[in-house]
Design a protein around this nucleic acid. Structure first.
Lengths: 256, 256
DNA sequence: TTTTCAATGCGTTAATATGACACAATGTAA
DNA sequence: TTACATTGTGTCATATTAACGCATTGAAAA
């Protein structure tokens, strides 16, 4: 099927496959070079950037839809993924955006479910940056990581959704150690601290940070240090899932 | 319009007015006699209890839809109301539930948007019990308050939604003073403490509780005491909205 | 009227957690 | 071999919290 035909089919018959009026948008966070990043798509139909999103199959759990979308974009499975808010402004519609695009794919004035109003459920994903190979889909020119202070203009309310996700992440970080999902399996204490400093946007005392984090018991120090740095080699740590879950149930609350 | 005709019309033409596949369900909490209560409807079509819910008008913000539903049930406006989760199990459908009911209103085997799968957005509402007069609607036999440990069997996943709302409320209470929304304008310190003890389900030290709560600065003590109790009369307090909002912005975090 | 008594308002103290900082140790590069 | 940036560990003053004491109050009982 050609690209044009595929798009036409999606616009004209997608509603036979997907639920109407509902979409899922993922804010995919990563951490690299001491910066928090988000993964964005450049949507062909708008010529602007957008959150990776999609629709829910008629017989699919929404969480699975989000997982599916994530898998397509990042190749990753089994990662931290969580809905954080539903966005329901009555004006949420791509009707105006894609007129020119539609002409290009041979759509005239046909009606389409895609022009209707959409309520979107925002999902927040935390991934290991080093494990991701961004994959654009058929209706996207590009798929790239952006630093949070270099985010381009985005379609619709996607910038707002992104900001809400970030705010939510900051809140979460105060009582769930979600930050680990953004790091590789092995990481050093300074790396973990940088992550927290970046997300919370404030400096933390190195020694007090270490004391508090280790006190939670969710870290295990490995008998291995990072080589190749021009100073004392830091230990690697790993994250002990079992203790983490125990801490979660007990209602961990650690201020930093 | 007769009741039967109204229902038929809703089943056959409701989708011209409302968004398909999406509903809103409200978990309305109140506090009375030292117990946390929820407001439930007895749905005629199921003969069982359900959360007060409804649908979203095609051009209506979802939050407004939730407000509208709440207003109908409680008569209240401008109360604490907040979405907390979207429930999206593919099996969420009332198709099986209401066969007998449909026969009674003269529906045979017509198709209806109401039989399709629904994703529902859960809203949590905190209201002043003393201000509410429960109002059943046309498709409900009754509208009543239930104590949390006396909740009857409910349709679909409504019990699960209720439990999630409660869990969410407990979390909220740890860093937002949302409890005030459950009390009358004037309340005593022991009342406030009972509220916290009930929701958090643990005993709190009376003196430490008072110290911490007053330290937040969101309370103002009135020059007025509760009369008619067989012991020392407690002071009334009121809740200072201005200070509350200031505390929220600053990121209040008070452990109890 | 007087006494009783449960509940309230206010205060004290010891244990614990937190923030701020000192210093020795380490591994690469000069 | 030395310099140096950075890490691991420890200390101490201060703030916060938990646990508890005691006098006060006002309706009910005597």
């Amino acid at each position: 099927m050609t690209f044009e035909k595929e798009i036409r089919d999606h616009y004209l018959h997608g509603h036979e496959k997907y639920l109407r009026h509902i979409s899922v948008d993922c804010v995919i966070f990563g951490f690299h070079n001491n910066e928090l990043k988000v993964l964005l798509l450049k949507a062909r139909y708008a010529g602007r950037w957008a959150l990776p999103g999609g629709f829910i199959l008629k017989d699919e759990h929404m969480d699975l839809a989000a997982q599916r979308i994530l898998k397509h974009r990042t190749g990753l499975d089994e990662i931290y993924l969580r809905q954080f808010h539903a966005f329901s402004d009555p004006g949420r519609s791509t009707k105006k955006i894609n007129q020119q695009f539609l002409k290009n794919v041979g759509m005239k004035n046909e009606k389409s479910w895609m022009f209707e109003r959409f309520i979107t459920i925002g999902y927040s994903a935390l991934v290991d940056f080093t494990k991701v190979t961004p994959v654009p889909d058929t209706i996207s020119d590009a798929c790239e990581w952006f630093s949070l202070n270099g985010v381009p203009e985005m379609i619709l309310d996607h910038r707002y959704i992104l900001d809400e996700a970030l705010q939510n992440l900051r809140l979460q970080l105060n009582f769930h150690p979600v930050g680990f999902n953004l790091l590789p399996k092995k990481f050093t204490m300074p790396e973990l601290q940088k992550l927290y400093e970046t997300i919370l946007d404030k400096k933390l005392d190195r020694r007090n940070f270490q004391r508090k984090i280790t006190a939670t018991g969710i870290l295990k120090r490995l008998n291995e240090t990072r080589k190749g740095v021009a100073h004392k080699a830091p230990f690697y740590y790993k994250f002990v899932m079992r203790e983490y879950e125990k801490a979660l149930r007990a209602g961990m609350g650690f201020d930093l």
